[in-house]
Amino acid sequence: MIDIYIFADYLNKKQKLFLFFQTYTNDEIAVSKQLGISRRFARYLLKQAGHYDRVRRAQKEYANLDKQIQSLSSIFSKYAIDGLIQYKDAQNDSYTKFMKDVGIQDDQILQLYITYKFGGQKGAVFQLEEFLLGMIRLKCQSIKDLKNLVPQLRQKIQKENKYRKLYSYFFKVMSQGKNVIRFTEAITLWDSLLNEQFKEIIDFIQFCKAKPAEFQNTTKVSFDLWCQVWKFFETIGSDYTKFDENDAWPLLIYEYVQFKTK
């Protein structure tokens, strides 16, 4: 039988937690509207403000960032094509130029990590506010600062094992809320995100690329399949004795195991 006092205490704590998050959300909306910035930027400012008089402190924090924002906006404008740092075509590719200036044009993981830190919501594209907030969060005043930070970012990825977070993040970015991505997009991301994590991924990518063109062009990869691919290489790898056909693995994984063990 449930102790009525324990249950009442549980409800009280739950209500307080709800009110806390409700207040936090209201503050976030207020700061966003008052300053004309995204809720993501407002969330960053509120985090810096602490727990008391948060909205006013967040506004003050934003005012303190004015000079840095102006300086970073000027840097952004040097790269911007139609108001974005982006790959538009071979002649209009400010994204690659930006990554080259940072010194990581050949390092896909670091490119993905910086895109993640900037909060890029469309893959290899940065809006002005994403660029501003990313540079501010990384405490970088210039491209040179970001370039000098690269070795630390690489260590951070490895030390804190950020690969799985990047893996989930980029699926959500590429799917744009549809919860599926194209098979060809998945192959490219598997190669970029898992190459350093699982050595067996090379064989899996070759297996996927060997699929008929019609299959590759029409097949969609769901978030469930996306997660199951990570789980497979994390738990099975190349030791197929661990593979249980009675487990609910996706068809693509079954076919891959059959391909490797036939």
Score class of each variant (00 low, 15 high):
residue 1 M to E: 12
residue 6 I to K: 09
residue 15 Q to M: 11
residue 16 K to I: 14
residue 25 T to S: 11
residue 27 D to I: 03
residue 30 A to R: 13
residue 32 S to P: 06
residue 32 S to R: 03
residue 44 Y to I: 04
residue 46 L to Q: 01
residue 54 R to C: 04
residue 63 A to F: 07
residue 74 S to F: 11
residue 76 F to P: 01
residue 80 A to Q: 05
residue 82 D to L: 12
residue 82 D to H: 03
residue 84 L to P: 00
residue 92 N to Q: 13
residue 95 Y to G: 02
residue 96 T to C: 02
residue 97 K to T: 07
residue 100 K to I: 05
residue 111 Q to S: 06
residue 113 Y to C: 02
residue 121 Q to P: 07
residue 122 K to V: 05
residue 126 F to K: 00
residue 129 E to W: 01
residue 134 G to D: 00
residue 136 I to V: 12
residue 139 K to D: 13
residue 147 K to Q: 15
residue 151 P to Y: 04
residue 154 R to S: 13
residue 154 R to W: 03
residue 155 Q to T: 15
residue 156 K to Y: 08
residue 165 K to D: 14
residue 166 L to A: 05
residue 167 Y to C: 02
residue 171 F to I: 09
residue 173 V to K: 00
residue 176 Q to N: 14
residue 183 F to P: 00
residue 184 T to D: 15
residue 185 E to K: 09
residue 189 L to C: 05
residue 202 I to C: 06
residue 203 D to K: 10
residue 204 F to Y: 11
residue 207 F to C: 03
residue 215 F to M: 10
residue 215 F to N: 12
residue 222 S to Q: 03
residue 223 F to Y: 09
residue 224 D to C: 08
residue 226 W to R: 03
residue 231 K to V: 10
residue 235 T to E: 11
residue 239 D to P: 06
residue 240 Y to G: 09
residue 243 F to Y: 12
residue 247 D to Q: 15
residue 251 L to Y: 09
residue 253 I to M: 07
residue 256 Y to K: 04
residue 259 F to A: 10
residue 260 K to A: 07
residue 260 K to M: 15
